[in-house]
Write a protein that binds this DNA or RNA. Structure first.
Length: 271
DNA sequence: ATGCGGACCTGTTAGC
DNA sequence: TGCTAACAGGTCCGCA
């Protein structure tokens, strides 16, 4: 599920339900996520109040008086506010229980996600301190990208998916943004002109904004249960459309493999 | 410094 | 129909 639009959709979905609520218990059923959930999580969280729910890249930051809970949803994670009496299902690894009748429930079948506690400035946490700029801010500009790109020979797609450069651009939206910008995913980064970086930056912002407004993209897992699907899927131009025809020129969409990830593009519209 | 491949883990699907 | 292999929205880490 989670690329930046999905994480932001999650943040907006849970914030009003848990902000200013007091934690009365923490139930950890499975601590082996990407990194083990700290043993003292229950002790650290119980009795604290959530002061805000923020996002940095794809990390969610649940700020409390004594520290911050960092949550990453990995590939398959989701966070939902549920009635605390609702029986947990197979991959419901953590419940953060509130003084209201609710609990915040972390589900993550693949367990690539993370839940960590820090008492310091969370933005200085090892996992956050070297993150690149937020894509939906003015800091993320063509000049910024161009400046960092000059000696890089990696493919442009890998470059924009590098979280040290810009956060939140995952595989789906990288493919979509490159289509909108008319840039082939395999082009060496250093060969992309400032003018084309301009188009790329605009495309990334547009794709992410549209996806957020549509509630994210739902491909597989997220469709079931009562979690509403995201509606961005209908707007996809290339992702998961290998063999289908380009919506702009009717050529056949191609799929290649870059690293371990699938790249989709139109060889006519993208050069 | 940069780039690449492997690692983490389970569920679903494509292919035989 | 059933088994196996490949693949899936992420990203850190170690090595060349």
């Amino acid at each position: 599920m989670p690329e930046l639009p999905e994480v932001e959709t999650t943040r907006r979905g849970i914030a009003s339900h848990i902000t200013h609520h007091c934690i009365t218990d923490v139930i950890v059923r499975q601590r082996q996520l990407r990194w083990p959930i700290p043993n003292n999580l229950r002790k650290n969280l119980t009795g604290q109040m959530i002061s805000s729910v923020e996002r940095r890249g794809k990390y969610l930051l649940l700020r409390m008086q004594m520290g911050t809970l960092l949550v990453h949803l990995g590939m398959s994670g989701s966070l939902r506010v549920v009635s605390k009496s609702l029986p947990p299902e197979k991959h419901d690894h953590v419940d953060i229980v509130f003084d209201s009748k609710t609990a915040l429930r972390l589900r993550d079948p693949r367990r690539f996600g993370a839940m960590l506690w820090t008492t310091r400035d969370p933005l200085q946490h090892k996992l956050l301190k070297d993150l690149g700029v937020e894509p939906l801010t003015e800091e993320f500009s063509a000049e910024y990208l161009f400046h960092l790109s000059r000696h890089r020979k990696v493919a442009i797609k890998s470059f924009i998916m590098d979280s040290h450069i810009v956060v939140g651009v995952g595989n789906i939206y990288a493919n979509e943004a490159l289509f909108l910008a008319g840039i082939r995913p395999t082009v060496a980064t250093k060969r992309v002109s400032l003018q084309r970086m301009q188009k790329l930056v605009a495309a990334i912002k547009l794709v992410l904004k549209n996806a957020i407004n549509s509630g994210g993209t739902t491909l597989r897992d997220f469709t079931r249960g009562d979690g509403r699907p995201g509606y961005f899927r209908q707007q996809l131009n290339v992702y998961d459309r290998a063999g289908e025809s380009c919506k702009q020129c009717a050529s056949t969409i191609k799929c290649i493999r870059q690293g371990q990830r699938a790249s989709y593009y139109c060889s006519h519209c993208q050069r």
